[in-house]
Amino acid sequence: MTVDTNLLVDSYVDWITAAISAEVVDEEVVELTTPFLDRHNDHLQIYVEKQASDLYLLTDDGYIVGELKSSGVESRGRRREELLNRLLAGYGVDIVDGELQTKSTGQGLGQRMHSLVQAMLSVDDMFMLSQPSVHGIFFDDVAKFLDDSDVRYTPRAKFSGKSGLDHLVDFVIPKSRNAPERIVQILDTPRRDRVESMLFAVNDTRAARGSETEYYAIVNDLKNVPPEVVNAFSQYSVRAQPWSQREQLVQALAA
């Protein structure tokens, strides 16, 4: 069945537009409440401060770093700090005095808001496994699986989509004689907002990458995965593979 990609894009944008709200904090700062949820099911908020006639500061006001500290992540080793910094750099986001920040001109505000929210979501998902009973980070686990399977890949690559927005993808496997380019995204939190955001990125970049590019989603099924999640990916020609069945992907990704 052929899926109307414009329908997905319009539906995603309509959902965000209907769910986002703005509140003026003072003359130069606006608080935006997004439809995206963190691991506590609280809506993520960002703050936009006008600093000059055409310069804006976007910040999470220290929320994400504060959450990491409260989870004990910051004290759990240099590896996680390096991974955090590399992830944020991919989105063009910095940590300044404990806040996730980025700056933008008026023309680029949409892209920078998108990047900041996606960075907040990615960090929140990445460190959901920070409890003492869990031994690793899902991104690290997937990377090790690809390494052990002799899969060649580039991690954390940024692609521009048809919409003009940039999207950070987790792993890109280059085209070979036997297989087309493959893009692998990881889904650690199988919730509606995460799925819709990922499918939007897939279809937005698919138009730019070409019809031969194949898309995969590795889903962390250590958590409950609703059946509609797998079905949603299938509808948009994305192969969703449970982490527990990852060995079934080796042949397709190593080709």
Rank of each mutant, 00 (worst) to 15 (best):
H167W: 15
F233S: 01
V229G: 03
E196C: 10
P227H: 01
V151R: 07
R209P: 00
R191W: 03
E214K: 06
I137N: 03
K223V: 15
A179D: 01
P227N: 02
L187T: 06
V184Q: 01
T189Y: 14
H167I: 14
V230E: 00
S197I: 06
Y215F: 15
V151Q: 10
A143N: 08
V219I: 15
I183Y: 03
A217M: 13
P227G: 04
F159K: 02
F233I: 02
S133I: 10
I186E: 05
D148Q: 14
D140C: 06
L121I: 15
H135M: 04
R191L: 06
V142M: 06
R182I: 06
Q235I: 00
P174K: 08
F127E: 03
A119F: 06
S237D: 07
V172W: 02
F171V: 00
K223C: 08
S211W: 10
S211I: 09
L187V: 14
N220A: 05
D204F: 02
S237W: 00
Q131A: 12
D221P: 03
V134R: 12
Q245C: 04
D221T: 06
Q185F: 06
K223G: 15
H167D: 09
P132G: 00
V230A: 01
I218R: 04
E181Y: 01
E212M: 10
M126A: 05
P242C: 07
Q131H: 09
I186D: 02
I137H: 04
V229K: 03
K144L: 07
S163V: 04
E181G: 06
L168I: 10
S211V: 11
V219A: 02
I186W: 05
V184M: 00
I173D: 05
P190F: 14
D124S: 14
L129H: 11
D147W: 13
A232I: 01
S122N: 12
R194W: 10
D193C: 12
R156C: 15
S160A: 11
R206S: 14
A232D: 01
Y153R: 09
P132S: 01
D170C: 02
D221W: 09
M128D: 06
W243A: 08
L168V: 15
A179G: 06
M128W: 14
S160P: 04
S149M: 04
V169A: 14
A179S: 13
D170W: 13
F171T: 01
M126N: 03
R194Q: 10
A201M: 05
D125N: 15
D170K: 07
M120N: 05
Q131T: 13
R156S: 15
L129R: 14
D170E: 10
G136K: 03
D140Q: 10
V195E: 13
D124C: 08
S197F: 08
I137Y: 05
V169W: 07
